[in-house]
């Protein structure tokens, strides 16, 4: 395969997201403007101008109308996907990090970092269809985890919220009561910072990547660790193939140490693992920095990776990929 290289960002990538139809790819980076691209040919459709800090995460509504972004400028913005117009800004006392639209797009969850005395928080906001009636009120504020909450997603039927972050514990929150229902067992769970969390296509399980050099597959209802994928380097990103029993894991040497060693020693490949057998299938090379973001196209025929090197690489699989035998 010949990947398409997208050079729309001047700083390291932080997050990638396909819309549900798989025709658009959203990219966030530490520069201030998220980009949107056509996923089939890599043409840039537009940029969302208005943030004043690194953009850590984004999510797109089911019918590709709204985009929500969480930024280090202490705000989360809602955008009109097709025009790039800023529809609303949620302001916080500290940098926003993870964002996720709930099923139905009527709610969204936003996490904020610990910052000058404020602890990290998880905010649930109502999202109005008519953005002029949008309020800033949080429906629910959850506190408790120490350190940043790097990723947050909604559980089945919007009844729970799953969060993972610097305290290396995966938590499941009840949306009605605001209590932690379940949390990962420190023995079987991650030992270090959880850097990424991504749901499967059907939402029945999710994968987490951690700096403890493993990625784990969890049941979204029981928080049971189903599988563990071990690599040699800290994991920054992980994604589950929507069609095949594959997961892809990306990471690499920590950014601060990259310049001190050879490029090959960095292990900057996207590694494919068999989801069930936990066996490594292979690697896709190309980045010359750690991989920070990975996303599978919902059709399962392509995936993209974003690196510390500022590039997004969109890979459309060769025909032989679909016939890989273990």
């Amino acid at each position: 395969m010949r990947p398409i290289l997208l050079k729309g960002h001047e700083r390291p990538l932080t997050f990638l997201k396909y819309n549900r139809d798989g025709d658009l790819l959203f990219s966030c980076a530490k520069d201030h403007n998220p980009n949107v691209w056509y996923s089939h040919n890599g043409d840039r459709v537009g940029t969302y101008r208005g943030h004043n800090g690194a953009v850590w995460c984004c999510d797109v509504s089911r019918h590709t109308e709204r985009l929500i972004t969480g930024s280090a400028d202490q705000s989360a913005n809602i955008w009109d996907v097709e025009t790039g117009a800023k529809l609303h800004t949620f302001s916080f006392e500290s940098p926003a990090r993870a964002v996720d639209f709930a099923l139905g797009d009527k709610l969204c969850v936003i996490t904020t970092d610990p910052f000058i005395g404020n602890p990290s928080e998880i905010h649930v906001k109502r999202v109005e269809r008519d953005s002029s009636r949008q309020s800033n009120e949080s429906v629910l504020v959850l506190r408790g985890p120490a350190g940043r909450i790097n990723r947050v997603v909604w559980g089945p039927l919007n009844k729970t919220i799953i969060s993972g972050g610097e305290d290396s514990i995966v938590r499941m929150w009840d949306v009605d009561t605001g209590k932690v229902i379940k949390q990962s067992d420190p023995e079987t769970g991650h030992q270090k910072v959880i850097s990424s969390l991504a749901k499967s296509a059907d939402g029945s399980h999710f994968i987490t990547g951690s700096h403890d050099k493993t990625a784990k597959l969890w049941d979204i209802r029981t928080l049971e660790v189903l599988k563990t994928y071990s690599t040699e380097r800290p994991v920054n990103a992980a994604a589950i193939s929507p069609t095949l029993d594959h997961v892809v894991i990306g990471g690499g040497q920590e950014a601060s140490q990259v310049t001190t060693s050879d490029r090959r020693a960095g292990k900057f490949e996207a590694k494919f693992f068999h989801k069930i057998f936990e066996e490594e299938i292979g690697g896709v090379k190309g980045h010359f920095g750690p991989i920070n973001a990975l996303a599978f196209n919902p059709d399962g025929r392509s995936f993209s990776s974003g690196g510390e090197d500022g590039y997004v690489r969109v890979h459309h699989f060769d025909a032989d990929y679909y016939h890989i035998k273990m």
Partner: peptide
């Protein structure tokens, strides 16, 4: 097109197809 993509032209080379053939290298 909107945002920065508006004034962008092909010579900016934002989107480049890799000249290198990359394979899923089996381990």
């Amino acid at each position: 097109k909107f945002g920065d993509a508006l004034g962008q032209n092909a010579s900016d080379n934002l989107t480049v197809v890799s000249t290198e053939e990359i394979f899923l290298e089996r381990t």
